[in-house]
Structure formats: C-alpha cells, structure tokens
Design a protein around this nucleic acid. Structure first.
Lengths: 221, 221
DNA sequence: CCTAATGTACGAACCGGTGAGTTAGTCATA
DNA sequence: TATGACTAACTCACCGGTTCGTACATTAGG
C-alpha cells in the first residue's frame, strides 16, 4: 500500500522552486489578511506550507519583503482581471453601470485583497512605495472609465465636469466600504452589508448612484 | 531655579486617577492608530505617559481591554458630536446635503478614529462585540437621516424606496474611503484625496452624489 | 492609619531571523 | 550512458532581543 503521509506531488517533482514560492505566497496572503502585518506569524505561515520557515527567508528575504510580494501578486491579479474588461461596445450609460457592477463583483469575490489594502493603508502604503513593480502597475479600469466618460460627455449624456479618477474613487469607495467595514457596520447598525439576500439591492444601488450622478444637470457654478 | 525634569502638574495633584486614565487613553489612541493592534506596544504607550505600564494593567487589565476602552471613547466622541447635529430646520434637500458635509468634515478631522475602525474591522469587530457600551451606543445621525428622509419622501422630493441605513452607508463609504485609503490611492493614482486644495471639490462631489441619487426619478422596477 | 495609587524589577514565552550542513537535480564529459 | 562535479533547493537546530504581563515594595492623601 501507498504511504499515507507521503505528501501529494502534483507535478511529480520533490524540489520545485516555483511551486514552493507560490505555496508560500498563497498561505502568506491568507495569514496577513487574517491577522494584519504585525499579527501575522512567519512560523504560522511556514507551518501551513509543505516547506519551512528557512525557505521563506531564502526566497523572500524577510517578513517585510514577503508582505510586499503578497501585495504585488494581489495587485497583479486585479490588473489582469481589469485588462479583460469588455464594456466599451455598450452605450456610455450601460457601460459605466456595467463597469460599476464588475467592480462590485470583484470586491465581493476578493475579501482577502480588500483586507490587504486596508492593512497597507494602516502602514501608510510604505510597501507599495518600496516596490518597483507596484509603482508602475497602472489601472486598466481607469483607462476604460476615461474613454467611456469622454464619449459620454462628448455626446452630452454625461455632466461635463466629472473626472475619471474621481469617478473611480466614488465607485471604489462604495464597493470597498461594503466589504472592508462590514464587521463594524454590522455590529453597530445590525445590518450585514454582504448578506447574499441584499446583494442585488446594493449592486443596483451603486449603479443608480453613479448613473444619476453622471447624468444629472448640475446647478450652474 | 525650577527643576527642568519635574513634570507639570496642571491641577496640582500628584495622584489623580481620572487624569491618569485619560492620559493613558489619549496616548493609547495614538499608538493603536499609528501601528495597529498588534503593532502597538504597551511599553511605548507607558513611556509616552507620565505614568508607568503597571498603571495600564491596574486600570484597564490588559492590552485587549485597553483597545476596547479606546474604541469605546472614540465612538462616544462621535455620538456626542452627532447629538449636536442641527439640520432639521432646513428643507430636506439642504438638510441631507448639510448632514453629508458635516459627516465629511468629521471624517477629515478624526483620521485616528478612521484608522481605529479599519483596525477593528481587520479583527472582525471582536472588541465591539465584547463591549457592553458599544453594543447599545446607537447613532443619532442615523435617527436624523431617518426623519429627514421620511419628510422628503412624504413631500415627494425624494425617491420613495431609499432606506436610511443604506443612505448612511453611502455617505460614510465616500467619507471613509477618502481618508482610510488615501495612501494606497495616492501611491497608485498619484492623487491625494485629502489634499486641502481639493477639499471643497470632494465635499461638493459628495453632496451632489447624494442629492442626485435621492431626487432622481428611478425607472419603474 | 488605612488604602488607593504608583514605581521597580523581572520572568517567561514568543518571534523574527540565521549558521551550518545536506540532498536532489542537472549537465558536461568520457 | 555512466559518472562525477556543481549548484539550487532544502532541513535542522538554535539564538538573542522583544514584549506582555506580574510580584512585590512603596507612598500619597484622606
């Protein structure tokens, strides 16, 4: 019979640098998201991988660099997802609503990423600042917003003076808050913002909010 | 000449339990907001007060309870501020806008509080759950919203199906995100959401967003 | 004189990090 | 294809500083 404690080796290799590093990053992502930067334990990350703490230092250098690597990969996933956005065949109103909905979905599907961003903000975004990759990662979603907005403004559908970065902030704020602050909000107001039964309600609310803001005639300034 | 290292004793008392506790809470608020729960150091808090670590344990019991006490006081300040809200003499549209602006101002003026809330969410709001005070603290602002909303809906100014808690979430999301995520947002998009020169712009944006959402005629559902 | 308030000193576990040695995989060469 | 040299990948054992928490002594003040 086959030994029970012999670990599975999916690709047949006992030594596999890429797989070991990926496994460390997976577990580290969970651990940092669970407990925050200082609350996370390097020993705990090591214990939950098939490798040892020594390897974490071998590949990443230290806890700080490991967290940076976790952030880099998490932001990379976001960018890759955003690059597959396909909304520009829609009319501007439908395109913006769809983009908001996809942003909404993405936040809901990646609570660990939201937590990492919260944690990084607690630390003043110092790891992003220290990362070469993250400095020039860009935002495909922002480019999409920029183009839709220009098109909608040109055709007179949208209010003229709305900025793409501001609109992105508005959409992100709603999506982010709903996930990031669900615990305190739930405890204080007795309402779970991530209750599946309320999902469609909040998704529609976001779309309505953005579209009414974009299409309203604003008082002359 | 007077000894330089003799600390000032403003009220003449050397032993003053209330002042000692308040001083511990002040410093602990800064330290927890600076570094997060696990990043905060009890020794550091003690060093920055005129008392010793022993007194922190004497009065609060431990680090966990100290953080809970910090949260309780911070939320208490919010509630007291909200209780002084005076917007209901305005017409519903102006009242909601004014309320949103005051929420905006309050978030901007209390970044430490925002950080504490972020930290508490990282930890699943477990300290709020453990606190008797915080369970029943209520929210005067929410009561105000509820009344203005009802009045505006009755007079047909506001869309009928908007809920007070949802509106409060919408306003808070914008205000919270702007302060809480300013570091990552700034690093990634090169825009400081808390730049004083942009303050009026974002304040107006929030008001416009809320009012256009509330007064739009929504498509029949 | 009694007790709440405070100071001192220290313990014990924890935790990030490392020194030193070992093995698996690869590749050049005969 | 057999072999031996070489390096990346990995294991094991350990260290030293840090950090929460506390036992015990002391003092201010009513």
């Amino acid at each position: 019979m086959t030994s029970v404690d012999e670990p599975a080796r999916p690709n047949g290799r006992i030594r596999d640098a890429a797989r070991t590093q990926a496994e460390i990053l997976d577990v580290a992502t969970q651990e940092f998201a669970r407990a925050g930067y200082d609350g996370a334990r390097v020993d705990e990350i090591a214990a939950r991988t098939r490798t040892t703490k020594r390897m974490i230092y071998y590949y990443f250098g230290g806890k700080e660099q490991l967290f940076t690597a976790v952030l880099e990969r998490a932001y990379g996933v976001i960018r890759d997802t955003e690059q597959q956005l396909d909304v520009e065949h829609l009319d501007p109103v439908a395109a913006i609503r769809r983009l908001a909905e996809l942003t909404f979905d993405h936040h809901e599907q990646h609570p660990d990423f939201i937590r990492l961003v919260s944690i990084e903000n607690i630390h003043g975004a110092e790891h992003i600042a220290a990362s070469e990759k993250l400095g020039k990662i860009g935002s495909p979603a922002l480019d999409v917003i920029r183009r839709i907005l220009a098109s909608g403004q040109e055709s007179g559908l949208f209010t003229a003076d709305v900025d793409a970065v501001d609109l992105h902030a508005m959409i992100s704020a709603f999506c982010f808050f709903r996930v990031a602050n669900r615990h305190t909000f739930g405890a204080l107001f007795g309402r779970d913002l991530v209750d599946p039964a309320q999902r469609e309600h909040y998704r529609a609310m976001l779309g309505d909010m953005v579209i009414t803001y974009l299409t309203a005639e604003r008082a002359a300034q």
